[in-house]
Design a protein around this nucleic acid. Structure first.
Length: 887
RNA sequence: GCCCGGGUGGCGGAAUUGGUAGACGCGCUGGACUCAAAAUCCAGUGAUAGCAAUAUCGUGCGGGUUCGAUUCCCGCCCCGGGUACCA
């Protein structure tokens, strides 16, 4: 048989479509397997070879699981809100929905051409009103939820007890109180704003030199704007704990832990001299209180203006101004050194009564802890650097003892060097208050000082997180509108469920408004509303960020057409959690943290039945390409490169180039389009190569010769098994049976372990064997097709049908391997002398160690190797190796 | 700086409760077929020495444990990713 992949693939794709082969039925009696791909943003560029990598892997797992009797949910959809379609709209006036539709159609066509077994009846699109209706609905749930810290659980806002003094203070006070508790709130936030683009931009879009990545101008400034925020830090502890039981790559879990950034320490109050105010600091090292020689507050700290003395007023004001002008990147640039200014105010160190100066410096950040610190320069590198710059006292209270060399220790004790590790306390006694931690180690010190602070009412043990409120609004057109109305009297209300979805208005221009307002502020008719009493209101004009739609899409796949609920409870109960989630590592934190957060809120509200959404996560590695660069490091496009005997040179200059691995890029002309690969080698070859190129989680370069290699394999399969005379009836050769059953076992095990590359190599070994022996039985062939089917489904179906099977290979059961076929009769023992293998000895299987030893000693070859030496010891590992130690 | 990955032939990669290093594929070399080429099929292919049998070396570097180390331990080097004044 010729390997006519075009014909074969078209035929079977049609067959699967006609027979609804991949339709998932909600049959609750079967064991379920929910296998999810991170759904793509349908860009205008179409599919990249990186997309089918993950999709093929999950497809193989799904086809395998189906043949093992599982009810498999394997859906696909589009994360289709996003900036590119909107920018295209600004340039051309094309409605983003139109662009999106076109791109989705193209993505769908490309994905379908790969023979992936998705249930297309469950396709979803985040921009579809029937989808974002429920995104808006979930937003209203977040808005109407508060976090009860006592129970560690989110609850409906109706369950919030209003303190009596608040209710007495009137309606406005009550509303403010409640708003402070909601998981979603509308508040002032400091954001980046680009005057050229007339829009806020993300931190990542502002480059090192203070210019805006998108337009290149330096018209970027910080603005305070009212924005929607989500109180994700309330779930910090839950998000942290939840990680422990997840089957995720350790690296991803670690990144989430770092992002959440839990630290334990204490809050300590310092009295301010000459005022009745207190300055509250957060520290992880309350034990070093004796070494606190000054304090620092962030420039934005509310007390700054109050505590600054008249003499220091202008210096402080200047400093605050210049700090405000600095970009975040300047401010956090460690190489630039620390700056600050004295406020003129002093505080009292509660542990020893010392009067210490209060400074303002921008190395202290308002957003973490209390925005103020006690500085312990002897034992904190940042404080040390600052103290050196401004000649502030450095008092060592922790002796490193034997931990360092004598010179360094001398410096540390003299306050000339900084020591942040453990040691033994010195100078840490205050008899008046009964504190003496001298000689203790760090752990004990922290414990004792903290309990003293608590008993003295000066502070308390505190847990802090780096995780911040999530800025949840964008000044964009192409996003989910917030179902929110701002009324003229200052009231804010949400639409009723019955009024959802709130659709996007048609607008004439997609350009943002003049004052940092979203393009929706141009939509006059949509914008202005009035209630029954004639009260006027204005709709929220910001839209939700792209994360919103992807936060819960895995739930919608369960019941995508439900229009009375986001999903039916019974179905959710059956399908959740997701058993396998595959996608790129770039979502290690944001998407995966955001959706875990939403999921936990929904769990608390009784809307979902599992505490976590994704039980097992697997990150596919990136697919890169070879690129070429000159000795000086400049890159050369692939079409300018000539290869000769493993050396590369420039077509025109003849300069020698060396091969590197880099991201595919248009400028390097090394982008691979999956369409071209399918056209040239077929979908099965593309699928197989995506898996054979290397381990799924590794970063690896694409090579066309590699595709040829797997194409060659498939062609050899088609040629061998397509030839009727190669298939016989009757009993199979023993050796063929052995390799066949090895293959069944290895491929099955490897699929379970996501080791697809070695599964394929085993199938190659089997095929090479078939060529060697010339014929196999048709039963052997059938079994091989079943093993091949998850990987190269089109070819497997074709051969399966050719062999007389009437139903799809996809509905057959995974073959059982027979242990009896795998057992060897002889073992080839490597015999080594002093660890070096010298020869091999064939022995019957199942001999005892003693029998193996005797047999080895009897061999003439052994005698030869022993000659002139004495045997010290003989090690026999039955079934593995013989090692004879000589002297 | 800190955290997490990873270093194995010319290349992508196999093999770890410590037990024959280099499966499978690419590339390369030789042969068959062909007027020739492509395609295909067959054989070889870690390095060095040798006609060969064979020997020595060999999993980033330096040590250690062991009968035996790619695998375990200690100390380094290099590459990739994440993060960054979080007190």
């Amino acid at each position: 048989m010729d390997y006519n992949f075009k014909e074969i693939e078209a035929k079977w794709q049609q067959y699967w479509a006609d027979n609804n082969s991949f339709k998932t039925i909600d049959d609750f009696s079967k064991p379920k397997f929910y296998c999810l791909d991170m759904f793509p943003y349908p860009s205008g560029a179409g599919l990249h070879v990186g997309h089918p990598e993950g999709y093929t892997a999950t497809d193989i797992v799904c086809r395998y699981k189906r043949s093992k009797g599982f009810n498999v949910l394997h859906p696909m959809g589009w994360d289709a809100f996003g900036l590119p379609a909107e920018q295209y709209a600004i340039q051309t006036g094309t409605h983003p929905a139109e662009t999106t539709q076109k791109n989705c159609d193209n993505f769908r066509r490309q994905i379908q051409s790969l023979g992936l077994s998705y249930d297309w009846d469950r396709e979803i699109n985040t921009t579809d009103p029937s989808y974002f209706k429920w995104t808006q609905w979930i937003f209203t749930k977040l808005y109407n939820t508060w976090f009860d810290a006592t129970d560690g659980k989110g609850k409906h806002i109706n369950e919030l007890t209003i303190p009596e003094e608040i209710s007495k203070a009137g309606k406005k006070a009550v509303r403010e109180y409640v708003d402070q508790k909601r998981l979603a709130y509308y508040g002032e936030a400091q954001v980046w704003y680009c005057r050229t683009c007339k829009t806020v931009c993300a931190n990542e879009e502002v480059l090192n030199d203070g210019s805006h990545e998108k337009c290149g101008t330096k018209e970027v400034e910080r603005r305070f704007l009212k924005q929607w925020m989500l109180r994700i830090p309330h779930y910090a502890e839950r998000l942290l704990e939840g990680l422990d039981d997840l089957d995720w790559p350790e690296g991803v879990k670690e990144m989430q832990r770092n992002w959440i950034g839990r630290s334990t320490g204490a809050e300590v109050d310092f009295a301010l001299v000459g005022t009745d105010k207190k300055l509250k600091v957060y520290t992880t090292r309350p034990d070093t209180l004796f070494g606190a020689t000054y304090m620092v507050v962030a420039p934005e700290h509310e007390l700054v203006s109050e505590i600054t003395t008249v003499a220091q007023k202008s210096a402080v004001a200047n400093y605050i101004n210049s700090a405000a002008m600095k970009s975040e990147l300047d401010r956090t640039d460690l190489s630039k050194g620390k700056t600050g200014v004295f406020t003129g105010c002093y505080a009292i160190n509660p542990i020893n009564g010392a009067k210490i100066p209060v400074w303002v410096a921008d190395y202290v950040l308002m957003g973490y802890g209390t925005g103020a610190i006690m500085a312990v320069p002897a034992h904190d590198h940042r404080d040390f650097e600052f103290a050196q710059t401004y000649n502030l006292p450095i008092v060592c209270i922790l002796d490193p003892e034997e931990g360092v060399d004598t010179e360094l220790r001398r410096k540390i004790l003299a306050g000339e060097a900084c020591w942040s590790e453990d040691g033994a306390y010195i100078n840490s006694v205050n008899k008046n208050i009964g504190i003496d931690i001298n000689g203790l180690s760090k752990e004990k010190g922290i414990e004792q000082v903290t309990s003293w602070l608590e008993s003295a009412g000066l502070g308390k043990a505190t847990v802090n997180y780096k995780l911040r409120d999530w800025l949840f609004s964008r000044q964009r057109y192409w996003g989910e509108p917030f179902p929110v109305i701002h009324w003229e009297d200052g009231d804010v209300t949400l639409l009723d469920d019955a009024e959802l979805p709130l659709l996007l208005p048609e607008v004439e221009k997609y350009q943002p408004g003049e004052t940092g307002e979203s393009p929706l502020s141009n939509a006059g008719e949509w914008l202005h509303v009035a209630d029954a009493n004639g009260r006027k209101g204005r709709r929220e004009t910001n839209t939700m960020p792209q994360w919103a739609g992807s936060c819960w899409y895995y739930l919608r796949f369960i019941d995508p057409k439900n229009d009375s609920a986001p999903f039916a409870k019974a179905k959710e109960n059956y399908w959740m959690p997701v058993d396998l989630y595959v996608g790129g590592a770039e979502h290690a934190v944001l998407h995966l943290l955001y959706s875990r957060f939403w999921h936990k809120v929904l769990f608390d509200l009784g809307i979902v039945s599992t505490n976590e959404p994704f039980q097992k996560l697997y990150n596919q590695g990136m697919i890169l390409a070879f690129a070429y660069e000159t000795a000086s490091g400049s890159k050369v496009p692939s079409d300018m490169v000539t290869e000769k005997e493993g050396k590369y040179s420039h077509n025109e200059t003849g300069e020698e180039l060396h091969q590197i691995v880099a991201k595919m890029s248009k400028s390097l002309k090394n982008v691979v389009n999956p369409d071209d690969v399918v056209e040239k080698f077929g979908a099965d070859s593309l699928r197989l190569y995506e898996m054979f190129i290397g381990p799924l989680d590794a970063t690896k370069p694409w090579t066309e010769n590699g595709v040829k290699g797997v194409y060659n394999f498939l062609r050899r399969v088609a040629t061998f098994f397509g030839e009727k005379s190669n298939l016989t009836e009757g009993a199979e050769r023993k050796e063929t049976l052995k390799i066949l059953h090895q293959t069944i076992k290895k491929v099955g095990d490897d699929v379970e372990d996501m080791k697809f590359n070695t599964a394929i190599s085993q199938m190659m070994v089997f095929t090479n064997h078939c060529y060697k022996v010339g014929t196999v039985t048709s039963e052997t062939a059938n079994i091989f097709y079943q093993v091949l089917a998850p990987f190269a489904p089109h070819l497997a179906e074709e051969l399966w049908a050719l062999n007389g099977n009437l139903q799809s290979v996809g509905i057959s059961s995974w073959p059982q391997f027979d242990l009896a076929c795998l057992t060897e009769e002889v073992v080839e023992y490597p015999v080594s002398f002093n660890g070096k293998v010298r020869f091999r000895l064939e022995l019957p299987v199942g001999l005892s160690a003693k029998e193996v030893e005797d047999a080895a000693l009897k061999s003439d070859l052994t005698k030869k190797w022993i000659e002139g030496n004495t045997i010290v010891k003989i090690i026999v590992v039955p079934g593995k190796i013989v090692n004879i130690v000589l002297r």
